[in-house]
Simulated scan of single mutants.
Amino acid sequence: MKDGMFVFDAAIHVQDFTDRQIKQGDSSGRVGILRNQLTGFIDLTARKGPPANTGFHTPPDVDWAHSTLFEKSDTDLAMACSVPLFSHWKAGLGPVELSYELCKRDPKRILLTGGVDPAYHGLDFALREMERQVKEWGAVSMKFYQYQQRGCSWRADDRDIAYPLWEKAIELGLKMVQFHKGFPLELGPVEAFQPNDIQYAAADFPELNFGIHHLGDPYVGETISIASRFENVYLVLPLWFNQYFLQPRKMLHRLGECLLYVGEDRICYGSEAFIWPHIQTYIDAWANMEMPEELQDHYGYPELTRSIKEKIFGLNFANGLGIDVAAKKVELGVAA
């Protein structure tokens, strides 16, 4: 708890960028390109913000990760998100198996977001794997990366390849599916990461929530517009917090537009640990953040009240997943 506010981190990762994970035949050098992209972005955020984990390419030690989350920060609950990118990585860039191992360390506090890719592995396999991850590993959500490589991508509004996934998610009792949008990885075309395909999916499956990560940057305006019109679209803000220290004014504008057009009930905090391990810094920053009066006066952005902070800290994401926060507090033994 942070000053009595329940903290649910929507995005932590157990990544594995090591050489042992690289598939043979990476003649294009795209693994190196991706590593350089990540390193460059990390170096940018570190200019004014908390430093990143210098060993970010290696899976973190499970005990260290648990201590970083729950002993060195005020985090109450966290979501371990897999990164199902398979084109150049044997088990995916963030293997779901490693996320599950972290979840086993403390299953009450660390929840699993699984991941599959119906274009890369085939729809039938993806559906079976979704069911296995939910029933065997207890996954409570799924996260999707919809572009693997040239000729291997898919859309969330594709009735043949995507809609069976959403039907399966509902059948399995999942309340939310999540998407990496924006921030193209390696040489993938930027338009492959647009959020536009979420619209029909959200309209056709109103009983399912759709989480969009990273505000779809560079398609921030489109992402906010979509979330403003579809009440089952949630905005998950990992990287926003990491960028805040580098570009506070820009990030406050983005947050202000989210609050102005989408409202305070579907915006969610995420730290991007363990690439950025100084989790408490982000928690403290959000707890103490203010919307400058100038931005309120000139743009109509709302004041950052305690109620807004509490919702974004964890209540919104829990609600989107169908988690009873009061019951979870009792389970975890944290203050009511």
Rank of each mutant, 00 (worst) to 15 (best):
D124K: 10
Q149R: 14
E331T: 10
M176S: 13
K48Y: 11
G270M: 04
P107G: 08
Y219F: 15
M79H: 08
K309I: 05
V31Q: 09
L235H: 02
G32E: 12
S99K: 07
R249C: 05
A326M: 08
L255A: 02
E264L: 06
A10F: 09
K23M: 13
P302R: 06
D16F: 06
D197E: 13
Y301S: 08
D117S: 08
F274Q: 00
Y261G: 00
L38S: 01
V177Y: 14
F274T: 00
P206D: 02
H13T: 09
F193M: 13
K311S: 03
F313Y: 08
V83P: 01
H13K: 07
L259S: 02
I170E: 13
L295F: 12
L295A: 05
I22N: 06
A119Q: 13
L34F: 13
F183S: 04
L185Q: 14
W240E: 00
K328P: 12
K311Y: 04
D26R: 08
T58P: 00
F86V: 07
K143M: 14
E303V: 11
G92R: 01
A11K: 10
Y269R: 00
A285N: 15
I33V: 15
G333H: 03
G32Y: 06
P59W: 07
T75Q: 07
E97T: 12
F17E: 11
G320A: 12
K168G: 03
H298P: 01
R30E: 15
G115I: 03
D19E: 14
P107T: 07
A169N: 10
F179L: 11
H121M: 04
Y299G: 02
L123Y: 04
G55S: 09
S271H: 08
K329A: 08
Y282F: 15
E257A: 14
G25F: 05
K135G: 09
V7D: 07
L215K: 03
A336I: 12
A156V: 06
I279F: 03
N242M: 10
G29W: 10
R128K: 13
Y147T: 06
R150K: 15
E186D: 15
L260C: 05
N319Q: 11
V134W: 03
L255R: 05
Y301W: 10
K328A: 12
S225C: 10
A287M: 04
L127Y: 10
K309V: 00
M79E: 03
I226D: 03
I212D: 00
M1T: 13
F125L: 12
H298W: 09
F274N: 01
N232E: 11
A80N: 04
K2G: 01
M176V: 09
V116H: 02
A227V: 02
R105H: 12
W276S: 02
V140A: 01
V334G: 06
D265R: 09
G151D: 06
E331R: 04
I275Q: 05
L44K: 13
V31K: 04
K2S: 02
K108Y: 06
F86K: 03
L112M: 07
G32L: 11
M251P: 08
Q15Y: 08
P292S: 01
Y219Q: 10
